[in-house]
């Protein structure tokens, strides 16, 4: 899932300082799971903002609403109506959700409450770690299910740099060197020969942003629109 962190409160407060009625729009999917932007966090932010704005002598209403997913048009469509009562919107979705909402509410300022950090996993309660940089050319089949692009700090494709010490990464001694892990896993599975061949330069043209994916079943539909 997508992992994000709440921005410092002060930054959020300053962004919406010029506006009276402000709607805080949450997202019930990834950012709810990582405790950054779901219904509960929307409530917390609203309470915090209310208190601060009262202290600053600022008037205006703070609204709260959380939708299932802000990255899906059908879920945000109702917000068009809700937002009419507000001068500005704070979105606690990931960067994708914030942009989708901003595109929907063309004439209204939409502010992000989160810093979107990475695609990762839930290691344990409140502990998230990165796993994928969405590189458009997944190497996991070759590298034993450990991502060289993400888990190796340098994103090296052909083995370790000169830096690992005792199997730990040169950049962060608390972390395992991804290439030592890849080697170990493939060795234990008897698949080391998979990484003997030299991997060529990564096709970065594919990662040119913004990316688009069209599911094969829909190719004809979208091709017809071109």
């Amino acid at each position: 899932m997508i992992i994000a962190e709440r921005k410092p409160f002060r930054e959020i407060q300053d962004m919406v300082a010029p506006y009276g009625n402000v709607l805080i729009a949450g997202c019930g999917t990834c950012v709810a799971v990582c405790l950054a932007g779901g219904e509960k966090e929307v409530g917390l932010l609203a309470a915090q903002l209310k208190l601060a704005r009262n202290l600053a002598g600022q008037t205006g209403r703070l609204g709260e609403i959380t939708v299932e997913r802000q990255c899906d048009r059908e879920f945000i469509e109702p917000l068009r109506e809700v937002a009419t009562d507000y001068e500005a919107v704070i979105s606690t979705a990931c960067g994708a959700g914030v942009q989708f909402l901003a595109a929907l509410l063309q004439d209204k300022p939409v502010f992000p409450a989160l810093n979107t950090t990475f695609i990762g996993v839930n290691e344990a309660a409140g502990h998230y770690t990165e796993r994928c940089r969405s590189c458009h050319q997944c190497y996991l089949g070759i590298t034993g299910g450990i991502c060289p692009v993400t888990m190796c700090t340098k994103g090296l494709l052909n083995g370790p740099c000169g830096g690992p010490i005792g199997g730990k990464c040169e950049v962060d001694p608390a972390r395992d060197c991804a290439w030592c892990q890849i080697y170990e896993r493939l060795e234990s599975q008897g698949r080391l020969q998979q990484i003997e061949a030299i991997l060529p330069l990564h096709p970065h043209s594919r990662t040119t942003s913004p990316g688009t994916v069209i599911h094969p079943a829909y190719l004809r539909r979208y091709a017809a629109h071109e």
Binding site: N158, G159, P160, G162, P164, G166, I182, E196, I198
Partner: peptide
């Protein structure tokens, strides 16, 4: 003196 040596030898071969 790489520890472990296996991954370093792989890189060396490459």
């Amino acid at each position: 003196e790489a520890q472990p040596l296996g991954p370093q030898r792989l890189k060396f071969r490459k």
